[in-house]
Computed example of a mutant assay.
Amino acid sequence: MMQQPDILCIGSVLWDVIGRAPNPMRLGSDVPGRITRLPGGVAMNIAMTLRRFAMVPALLSNVGRDTEGDDLIGAAQRMGLICDHVYRSDDLPTDIYMAIEGANGLIAAIADAHSLEAAGDKILRPLANGALGSVTAPWAGPVALDGNLTVDLLRDIATSPLFRNADLRVAPASPGKAERLLALLGHPSATLYVNLEEAGLLCQTTFASSADAAAGLIARGARRVLVTDGGQSASEATGNDIITRVPPAVMVTRVTGAGDTFMAAHIASEAQGMARDAALDRACQAAATYVSGEIA
């Protein structure tokens, strides 16, 4: 019998190729370091963290029928992620993300999510054909949605009856794709998870703090938001009610995936019945632990 998920993770599932150097870097640096290939993508990163918090995520994405895709699906299944509903394309290759990180943070990154974009609404078929829901009986649980989807598809999701009962948790894939979330800004059940830069792009301004950014997004029409500002602060706003926490101070050894870890930990904490302040504290702790390198 097919296992029933308790949350859907919709978006990018790909290979992360990350080059990390232990020293600060600048444009043009050529330094020794380590290069790793790990399962990644926003949807995958969120799903992996949710699994660590004892939730059962299902992936909705595109993965190619190539060797890289077979390896990726195998790795996801070994982690306990449900991959039965992933769209396996015969003619689209498995996507990939490449980043360079130094001791001073992310230096540069390129996300090749063209296959996911080309697959379009094919990845949502299980929500309509009865596998996970239908128009008459839509999915009624939480959904983690990432901004690697096209603007047109995000607009469709914003008005689709397939999502009318869903608890939407939305994150941009990167600052470069933050403005795609404008389509979901006023959605009545959407919670946005963004960093300070992404909040500024959505509001076409700059903010001095996560609390200011959270207030700005609410004024822009968001129902609920969570804004992170690295190791400085994280804020959650619902209407005019804003709470802020300062993450634990840690030695930063990596940054790619930190925001996804924060989001997943917060979703899991709320799913387990934790109060607002406790859920925000736990999410900050999880992200700090992740960037410190304590989580493999």
Rank of each mutant, 00 (worst) to 15 (best):
R20F: 00
R20L: 00
R20V: 02
A21Y: 06
A21W: 01
P22T: 02
P24Y: 00
P24R: 03
P24W: 01
P24S: 01
M25C: 09
R26K: 13
R26I: 09
R26N: 10
R26V: 09
L27H: 02
S29F: 03
D30C: 06
D30K: 09
G33C: 11
G33D: 09
G33S: 10
R34T: 15
R34I: 15
R34C: 12
I35G: 00
T36D: 08
G40R: 15
G40D: 13
G40Q: 14
V42I: 09
A43G: 09
A43M: 06
M44Q: 15
M44R: 15
A47C: 00
A47Y: 00
M48F: 09
T49K: 04
A54C: 12
A54V: 10
M55G: 02
M55I: 01
M55W: 00
V56S: 11
V56F: 07
P57K: 13
P57Y: 08
A58N: 09
L59P: 11
L60M: 04
L60R: 14
N62P: 05
N62Y: 10
V63S: 11
V63L: 07
V63T: 09
V63C: 11
G64R: 03
E68R: 03
E68L: 03
G69Y: 02
D70W: 08
D70R: 10
D70A: 09
D71A: 05
D71H: 10
G74R: 13
A76F: 08
Q77P: 05
R78E: 08
M79H: 07
M79N: 11
G80P: 01
L81R: 08
I82N: 02
D84S: 01
H85I: 03
Y87P: 03
R88A: 04
S89N: 04
D90A: 07
D90T: 04
D90Q: 05
D91C: 01
P93S: 05
T94A: 06
I96V: 08
I96T: 11
A99K: 02
I100V: 15
I100L: 10
I100G: 05
E101C: 01
E101Q: 06
A103I: 12
I107F: 04
A108F: 06
A109G: 13
I110F: 13
I110A: 08
I110M: 11
A111M: 02
A111L: 03
D112N: 15
D112V: 08
H114D: 03
G120C: 09
D121V: 13
K122R: 15
K122V: 04
I123Q: 11
I123H: 13
R125M: 10
P126C: 07
P126Y: 04
P126R: 07
L127I: 10
L127D: 14
L127A: 14
A128S: 10
A128M: 05
G130P: 00
G133V: 11
V135F: 12
V135A: 13
P138I: 14
W139K: 14
A140I: 06
G141R: 15
G141L: 14
G141M: 14
V143G: 00
N148W: 14
L149S: 15
L149C: 14
